[in-house]
Design a protein around this nucleic acid. Structure first.
Lengths: 331, 331
DNA sequence: TCGACATTCTAGAGCGCTCCAGAGTTTCCC
DNA sequence: GGGAAACTCTGGAGCGCTCTAGAATGTCGA
């Protein structure tokens, strides 16, 4: 910086002014400084700048590495944070690096707010964290008063799925349950409510989970039901649904003719023509935007109002669901 | 820090010593300082510490968010960097945030070295970057002298695949080509060499790519070949292979009885029992370790020797490949 | 012509840490 | 008993920036 100032024939303070893009420098010197910086291949040291400035304007984000939907969310978070004048700092959760470790590095960096994507952090830790700085739990509903929750209306999503299937004539609809996964409890509830809304439907909950493997395992249980087999299933998520479809097809059943399947998330794969999975879409862009809004509005003191948001999902009908076929009626 | 020092009745310098874990403090004061810090919920400010220290000991990593195999690599990078006494700083590449932007933030943070996972950075940019600081291109082979490359021996991988299929009696083996994807050229070459090694085999290269969708599209072309159809295919990667399998199965063909398929990567899904894909395994742990070694050895001046490494892949035989069945022989 | 007011620029005190040089203490060996 | 060596601790300069207070210069209306 010293060098740049010297080369441009100005003071260090001027260089700082130019690089921060604030007023206080003539256009002429501005270009002169920029030129000098380019010649010297200089770029401001963000660590030092954050130190000098009181605030860091950094948003810490924890996420599961390699998780497709988290990836989509990150894209949105980057864009929204940038628009709000914040910088995002990533901290990945891996099998050897838990949520706690991920959060700790973000705190040590002095992030001003945290977005935890599908975090598995324990309740008390979460609460304490929320008391320390603005925190939003993205995707995962938690009941700690100190943290905002931004999530899809999971219950509504499953109600939409069930209603869609009911509308197609299905009466025997199974749930591939997500167990303890984020949002699973709400989806289960939505499923139950959806069934209760119409008489003569009964619930069949099959243990599954959030991967294709879980869906495949559940399919084995499903096939074992023999003639009591439901004619449709609503899965915890798309990956689970895809695993299920693979296995029932290998067993000779047709999708959707013999069994209709609906997923959740609307991951990229679901839209591929050869897959064409009917599913409940989560709006990654809006989820990201709301998460950033929740934390930045607290930071900027815009509103003392509680943050958090529940985004309505949307049913995307593709070709993994169809009306109950004739032979099924006769069964 | 001031507060902690006061509470423990020592100087600020002592607190620094304790938190850096260096020698120069008695066990007694050490615990006293730690206690005071805990009471005050203090943790050192990493920005300031990096500023004060000459070096940052930070390794910048760019990667594609939501990419499963990149995720596995990140896990390994975190672990290895930690062991080498470095910290990893993530910078995601998203549809709206290109490789260049990702790298720029890492430079502004003053990372000492860079690991670019499957980066799409242009050659000249890459070269200039490599001249500025130690850079390793992970997965993507580049010919810039200034950057180290750590990758799987892609050509060998495809040779293994082809040899495996040949050993099963296949004579007509297609390649689902990866086009311009990282490593695709090498795999194509390995495929060609593998075929040339034995007389009477000819190459059938079908355009594909790196997603299930690409594999599915290639499958359509494959099916259109009718009776000239190859009896086995080697795919650019597992995702591509899985898309291919989906489509040919939907068309009534059996895998592996009618067509044997081998993938590349050995992603988690490939090992699921209902998938059980024969594939060429890339060793994520070793790739990560070598990448970290390459950049840290340059930084620590351990060796002036060139970095980079080519890791041998390993064929994992599962049940998507089998010997050429009788009816195929008669065809 | 003069003061009021912009505009452009600079000096210098931080920000929270690290680390060197050196002050005090204790240990140890001849 | 004396000095070297080892240990424990402290003061203070410095890392590269930001930002406030104020200097220097220019502009303009009365």
């Amino acid at each position: 910086m010293e060098d740049v100032a010297a080369r441009a024939g100005v003071s260090r303070a001027l260089v700082s002014i130019v690089f921060r893009g604030v007023t206080g420098a003539s256009d002429e010197t501005r270009t002169r400084v920029l030129e000098a910086a380019r010649d010297l291949d200089y770029r401001p040291d963000t660590r030092a700048s954050r130190l000098g400035r009181g605030r860091t304007r950094m948003l810490g984000v924890t996420f599961a590495v390699g998780h497709a939907f988290h990836g989509e969310l990150l894209g949105s978070l980057y864009a929204e944070a940038d628009a709000a004048g914040y910088e995002v700092v990533l901290s990945g959760v891996t099998p050897n690096r838990d949520d706690k470790a991920a959060v700790d590095t973000l705190l040590a960096e002095r992030c001003e707010g945290l977005v935890l994507v599908g975090s598995g952090l324990a309740g008390p830790d979460l609460r304490r964290l929320g008391e320390r700085l603005p925190v939003v739990s993205l995707l995962r509903p938690v009941r700690e008063a100190s943290v905002d929750v931004v999530r899809t209306d999971d219950a509504l999503g499953l109600r939409l799925a069930v209603e869609h299937l009911r509308g197609l004539g299905h009466r025997h609809i199974a749930l591939l349950d997500g167990g303890r996964a984020p949002g699973a409890a709400e989806r289960r509830q939505g499923y139950r409510r959806g069934l209760r809304a119409a008489p003569g439907l009964d619930a069949v909950v099959l243990d599954a989970g959030l991967t294709e493997l879980d869906g495949a395992r559940a399919a084995t249980g499903f096939l074992a039901l023999g003639s009591h087999r439901p004619t449709a299933v609503a899965a915890f998520n798309d990956r689970c649904a895809l695993g299920f479809v693979d296995v029932v097809r290998q067993a000779g059943l047709r999708v959707p003719e013999d069994v209709s399947v609906v997923g959740f998330d609307d991951i990229e794969q679901a839209a591929y023509p050869h897959v064409s999975l009917t599913t409940v879409r989560q709006d990654a862009a809006r989820l990201g935007a709301e998460a950033v809004r929740a934390v930045t509005s607290r930071l900027d003191g815009v509103a003392a109002t509680t943050g958090g948001a529940v985004i309505e999902p949307e049913l995307v009908v593709r070709s993994s669901t169809t009306t109950l076929s004739r032979q099924d009626w006769s069964a």
